Simulated assay, not measured.
Amino acid sequence: MAPISSHSVVEPSLPVPRISLFSHVRWQDLAAGVSGGVVSTLVLHPLDLIKVRFQVNEGPVGSSSIPTERPQYRGTLDAARSIIRQNGIRGLYQGVTPNVAGAGASWGFYFFFYNAIKNYMQNGDATQALGPEKHMLAAAEAGVATLLITNPIWVAKTRLCLQYDQARLPSGSAALQTHQYRGMVDCLVKTYKFEGLRGLYKGLTPGLFGVSHGSLQFMAYEELKKQYNQYRNVPVNYKLSSWEYIAFAALSKVFAATATYPYQVVRSRLQDQHRQYSGVKEVIRMTWRGEGWRGFFKGLSPYLCHVTPNICIVFLIYEHMTHNNRTPAS
């Protein structure tokens, strides 16, 4: 048998494998997001309730052209005292069920989709650093997918938070005598019954704009972690201390919240069962005419008081749960 020359053997070129989008999905991302969202919401729901009531209150800021029939508050503490005086401590937890469900589902799906997309961009290599534009793209895609799933829950949360004690409303508040809801499921059923599918997706348009909020937040958070780890000359996915996670989460949230807050006012007013607007443009026009630019930042103080510790709790729980099986690089 003739010897085979080494020159006659041709090594076939192997294709470079490319992972599919969900080939590296980690269910612990979903569980960690749900856990963080539920815990933070249970602790901080009263501030969220107060924020929503400020957002929809068309009471004049710089003009008296828009009458209001809602309870009036002089500030966050006055609102809390007034609600407790009228409805007890339970009054601060109106709408907590859909808020817990919405926050748990939103954070769970957000982290689930975001990390699946980011992992796809990294081709499965968690140590590969991504640029800020890719972090924003992954966060935007995750935000749209999450919003489409959870928007009906947020409609129910807003409406339950705005269910006032009818016996204690100012006289002549006929406009506020609307459907009364016994809970989240009853609210979802009645909204669909009287307003159809469109009712369950009120506020979707400004909510889609709000995806930019999550994109800015995650971009800032990831960039802070990346730059910090590069400064320390360790891998980009190196586990940080709890205080480092808290600091980066708080900084990224304040940055994103301040930049995008007006969309939340618009969304809350669209979802409010006590007022009817033809769409986003009318909300913007009426708010600007009656309250000026300050109207678009109503509720910002209780919002920042609510979301800053909220995001710290969510990200701290998430990072620790998803790093449990990782060993720090040496």
Rank of each mutant, 00 (worst) to 15 (best):
M1A: 13
P3W: 07
I4P: 01
H7C: 01
V9E: 06
R18K: 14
S20L: 12
H24L: 13
R26Y: 00
L30Y: 13
A31K: 11
S35G: 08
G36Y: 07
G37E: 08
V38G: 05
V39S: 04
T41L: 06
L42Q: 01
L42R: 00
H45Y: 00
D48S: 13
Q55M: 15
V56G: 00
V56W: 03
E58S: 14
G62K: 05
S63D: 15
S65W: 06
P67L: 05
E69R: 08
G75A: 04
T76G: 07
L77E: 05
D78N: 14
A80N: 00
S82N: 09
S82D: 13
I83E: 03
R90P: 00
G91A: 07
L92A: 06
G95C: 03
N99F: 01
G102A: 14
G102L: 05
G104T: 03
G104I: 05
S106D: 04
G108I: 10
F109M: 14
F109L: 15
Y110V: 03
Y110D: 01
F113R: 06
A116M: 08
A116V: 09
I117G: 05
N119Q: 13
Y120N: 10
M121R: 10
M121C: 08
Q122V: 08
D125Q: 13
A126E: 15
A126P: 12
Q128D: 01
K134Q: 14
K134L: 15
M136W: 12
E141I: 14
E141M: 14
V144N: 06
L148W: 11
I149P: 06
N151H: 06
P152E: 02
I153S: 04
I153V: 15
W154P: 01
R159V: 02
L160R: 07
C161V: 05
L162P: 01
Q163K: 08
Q166E: 15
S171F: 05
G172L: 07
S173C: 02
A175W: 00
T178R: 15
T178A: 10
H179C: 01
H179D: 15
R182D: 14
D186P: 06
C187N: 14
K190M: 06
T191I: 09
T191G: 04
Y192Q: 12
E195L: 10
E195Q: 15
L197T: 14
R198H: 13
Y201S: 09
G203I: 03
P206E: 08
G207Y: 05
G210W: 05
V211P: 00
S212K: 00
H213G: 06
S215C: 05
A220T: 15
K225I: 14
K226D: 11
Q227P: 00
P235G: 13
P235D: 12
L240C: 01
I246V: 15
A247V: 07
A247H: 04
A256R: 07
T260I: 13
Y261P: 08
P262I: 12
Y263S: 10
Y263M: 07
Q264K: 10
Q264G: 09
S268Y: 12
L270P: 11
Q271W: 02
Q271A: 09
Q273P: 12
S278R: 15
V280F: 13
K281W: 11
T287D: 05
R289L: 09
R289P: 00
G292D: 09
F296Q: 06
F297Y: 15
S301Q: 10
Y303P: 00
H306P: 01
V314L: 11
F315M: 12
T322Y: 02
T327M: 07
P328I: 11
